[in-house]
Amino acid sequence: MFEARLLRGSILKKVLEAIKDLLTQATFDCDDSGIQLQAMDNSHVSLVSLQLRADGFDKYRCDRNISMGMNLNSVAKILKCAGDKDTVTMKAQDNADTVTFVFESPNQEKVSDYEMKLMNLDLEHLGIPETEYSCTIRMPSAEFARICRDLSQFGDSMVIACTKEGVKFSATGEIGSANIKLAQTASVDKEEEAVIIEMDEPVTLTFACQYLNYFTKATSLSPQVQLSMSADVPLVVEYRIQDIGHIRYYLAPKIED
């Protein structure tokens, strides 16, 4: 039997909001280390990699490895029925064809359960090579969401140029051109508000704004976001989920034809 119980149920609500617009369906791979999900969007241009460690749950039991194929729109609808302060439990019998979500209100006076059919998905799994990135940028996640939203009004591509001075986000289109430069924060007194750049080599890459705006749906999961870049490899946009794991988005770059 599989059972995962989380007092901070809002984390699962936010995780589904962060992936349901990019992916239509995905497999939750559960083993005794926790829950992993890896899936590409339909155009195979971006990939979501979610990890929720077993030790981040208030109760976690996984007698046998189980892979649960789910329609993410359905899961999002079910999780919308959970209160922000509810405890959320996901459970399934071994080789079951349904999964049950149980929501308990903080005062235990209201308990809801939703049972959903599982899907047989044989989605291809991609091997993501461990990479030493030339540039990593840690910045406030709300700042990154704002930049993606503002620049996507100017063009459907965004250029991210990272140098030792800082990072520049640019877009051009019919209206004109826009550039946003962020300098490395000098005195890091509040880590969460700092822009911290580690650069081995300068990197400039171009990405489609629409995917970046899908990624920023994860903003509520973490006050910070980390961008990792190297020449001619996919961008990594990572949101750490406190005490339990992370959600990582990979995006293939756009290149001169």
């Binding site: 195979h44 991609l126 091997g127 489609a208 996919p234 293939a252 756009k254 290149i255 001169e256």
Partner: peptide, 14 residues
């Protein structure tokens, strides 16, 4: 013009 690449060009299916 810019061409959007695909992830399969960078990650190998396992």
């Amino acid at each position: 013009p810019l061409k959007q690449t695909k992830l399969a060009a960078y990650f190998t299916p396992t």
